[in-house]
């Protein structure tokens, strides 16, 4: 498969009044052409900062202190602002979380959708508008010709997110970054937007990085999943790997707190007790240790490396060390392992 993006050992720091916040502490991953990678994790785990680093759309107090972001082998971090502008909205584009505030309230939506074309391609205004209209139709805005001159406030939340998506795909990007594109929408609209993204991916072949803190959304869209905690990835693998053969206790916790079709309606959801560590002074060992019921002595002292579970499945937990004692995961996770075996996998 074709690796189009590779992030290597990314570190991002924020200068704040209280000191330096080490928000991203060594994140590495890659993205294949045309696939969907989901990044999941609790609020504040660093999902947005990770993907914003790719486009270098970070707050002014942020520094990317270490790492490489290779796009077709070229390090984006070495590019000038002008070169980055040629990539933004053209090769790599982004969909934001809140459609109610993402559109310019004083510009017609036709112009907003046509803008990336006018920036990146040598097209006439007329052609750009024509293309904008086509794309608005493609994302499911009814009667787009008549609505090109309307303003954002004349559309519903779901429609506005469709317009934001239209802006992101109008120039057929190779990579689409969707930062919680459905969080602000109600459930039925959420499903529609996910369907739309999937459909568009098939039509234009774009790769998607899909961020969410809701594992429930992931199964419907992702090929691979990365689980993030306190500025690091803790586990990544295929959707099946993460859902049915999870290895990291944090992933167990996330899955446990997710409502599924299998858990019956009134089953109580367990949220993970405790709070994430303070990233002003990150712990020396495994950042999840204080909340981890399975934590061992070594978790306090040393950060676990990634252990290989299967070909594309890795998890950073000392439990996978050959010398670690065998532990019994929660019952719900054991059920998942059973399902994994039914699917033909080889659960641990």
């Amino acid at each position: 498969m074709d690796k189009i993006l590779e992030v290597k050992d990314l570190h991002v720091d924020f200068d704040t009044y209280n000191g330096t916040v080490h928000a991203i502490r060594g994140v590495s991953f890659h993205l294949n052409a045309g696939e969907t990678l989901a990044i999941v994790g609790e609020s504040g785990s660093g999902k947005s900062i990770t993907v914003r680093s790719i486009l270098q759309l970070l707050a002014s107090n942020a520094t990317i202190s270490k790492g490489e972001i290779l796009y077709h082998g070229d390090d984006l971090l070495q590019k000038s602002e002008k070169e980055m502008n040629n990539i933004r909205g053209n090769k790599i584009s982004m969909i934001f979380q809140d459609p109610m505030t993402s559109l310019d309230p004083t510009m017609t939506i036709g112009k907003q959708v046509a803008e990336p074309l006018l920036i990146h391609n040598n097209v006439s205004k007329k052609d750009a508008m024509k293309r904008a209209e086509e794309v608005l139709r493609l994302v499911g805005i009814p009667n787009p010709a008549a609505r090109m001159k309307d303003y954002p406030h004349q559309f519903s939340g779901g429609q506005r997110q469709r317009i934001v998506i239209a802006i992101a795909i109008v120039d057929y990007p190779e990579i689409l970054i969707a930062d919680e594109p459905t969080t602000a929408l109600d459930v039925t609209v959420q499903a529609e937007i996910i369907d739309l993204l999937r459909e568009l991916q098939q039509k234009i072949g774009t790769a998607i990085i899909f961020i969410t803190h809701d594992l429930g959304v992931v199964a419907g869209i992702a090929d691979r999943v990365a689980v993030m905690y306190a500025g690091r990835f803790v586990e990544y693998g295929s959707v099946e790997d993460i859902f049915y053969n999870p290895q990291h206790p944090y992933t167990w916790g996330l899955l446990d707190s997710m409502p599924t079709l299998d858990t019956n309606e009134d089953a109580r959801l367990n949220s993970i007790p405790g709070t994430p560590p303070n990233l002003l002074d990150p712990p020396k060992g495994d950042a999840f240790a204080p909340r981890n019921a399975y934590a061992m002595q070594i978790d306090e002292e040393q950060q676990p490396p990634f252990f290989k579970v299967s070909k594309n499945h890795f998890a950073a937990t000392w439990l996978l060390h050959p010398d670690a004692p065998k532990v019994t995961p929660p019952a719900a996770i054991l059920n998942r392992f059973k399902k994994f075996e039914q699917l033909g996998g080889n659960a641990k």
Binding site: L57, N85, F96, T101, D104, I119, H120
Partner: peptide, 14 residues
Amino acid sequence: SDYIELAKSKGNSS
């Protein structure tokens, strides 16, 4: 605001 962020993400120069 978010729409300025989106405008930047389109590749607009500052």
